[in-house]
Nucleic acid binder design. Structure first.
Lengths: 208, 208
DNA sequence: TATTCTCTCATACGAACGTTTGAATTGTAA
DNA sequence: TTACAATTCAAACGTTCGTATGAGAGAATA
């Protein structure tokens, strides 16, 4: 059991509490209490509440997009032919699963946080996505387009957009009370991701 | 120009402000100011803040689900054969479009509000969906299942779930800065809904 | 040991919040 | 007009919030 620094404890606690209570339901006082430190520590380490939340988002988003781009690199290396569509979709969707099984529950919580941030149209998240990760998202879109020559370019754009929506929505649902089966949480997550990949694949596959 | 009651003005203003700033970004003071009434009027007419928000959600949800179920009734009347899949999906998705073109912008705003409520896992919304509208949702799921006999029952369940996610996500995106084209807002909304229906249809259509 | 730097802590401040209260105003029925 | 109910209003209450401050603890350096 490693001892975490105050800064790390604050970040983890913020992530956990926001995943449980949402962005509005938390105060610096509850964060500092649960992180077993003092109220002033937050402002000392992060400046203010907004910057704390930004740092919390940033550290996991970097990991998520790095996992995605690594998988896409692997797919596209070697051949110049269009990649297998399912593999592309998996490269986009699966890292969410990977993350959620690592990081001592932190990743799983983060998916909830991310979904909330999307819905709240966080200005910070939006600018981060359009600045730091826009290239990666565009690469995925283009890779999908090459793999679906039978679909109009605009249609692919729309459907990729819709798939991202499903992913966000599903992520937000983990931890919610929807789960009625007696599966383990990680089995359930795994199943859900596979279903989502098949769903995305079907939505982009030409029928007949 | 009809004169609205204080109660209606408060409900409309709440809907508008939440669609713009989210559930956390509003106070009873800003609501009452924008509704051109007094702070205490909110508590007088609604009891407290929570009940105000619940009433705001309820009035439009009733309309939305009534539109949906009417369309489904129409589809299922007469023949005992499975309905056309596209028509079922349209009956579920299109009312969001219908609503957003009525009610003097109110419906459009409400879709944003609804998306936010989903993401925040509003306890009230959840219980309303599982109590008051569960039957309607189940009817749609069953109707889709009859129309897709080639798909496993569980798969249909998952995909309907994912489609709902896309719908929510898309609704949340209206009014956001994603729109780059020079279409009118209502044309854009229309196009988006059609794309969503085609997307949903493709995801449930057996390939090959 | 003395000094410096990093970090933690208790405490205080002003602002904003939801809610309550009682008086003033308006609408309505006798 | 009078009487009574419904509504509106200004003002205040207690609480909680984010932030700032300065004292002090602890480790590192000299």
């Amino acid at each position: 059991m490693t001892v975490l620094s105050t800064k790390e404890r604050i970040l983890n606690t913020t992530e956990k509490l926001i995943s449980e209570k949402g962005f509005s339901g938390i105060s610096l006082r509850t964060i500092s209490t649960h992180a077993k430190t003092n109220l002033a520590a937050v402002n000392y380490h992060f400046g203010n509440k907004e910057k704390l939340i930004e740092m919390m988002l940033e550290r996991r988003l970097d990991t998520l997009f790095e996992l995605r781009v690594n998988l896409l690199d692997e797919l596209e290396s070697g051949s110049s032919k269009p990649c297998n569509l399912k593999h592309i979709l998996k490269a986009f969707i699966a890292p969410a699963l990977t993350m959620s099984n690592d990081y001592h529950q932190g990743g799983k919580r983060f998916m909830l946080v991310l979904a909330r941030a999307y819905a709240e149209k966080s200005e910070f998240l939006h600018s981060l996505l359009s600045k730091r990760y826009a290239d990666i998202i565009k690469r995925f879109a283009q890779s999908i387009q090459r793999a679906t020559p039978y679909l109009d370019e605009n249609v692919v754009f729309w459907r990729f957009h819709f798939i991202m929506g499903s992913l966000i929505y599903v992520m937000a649902d983990f931890g919610a009370s929807t789960k009625t089966s007696d599966m383990s949480e990680s089995d359930y997550f795994n199943l859900c991701c596979n279903e989502l990949i098949e769903f995305a694949l079907a939505s982009l596959t030409q029928s007949k």
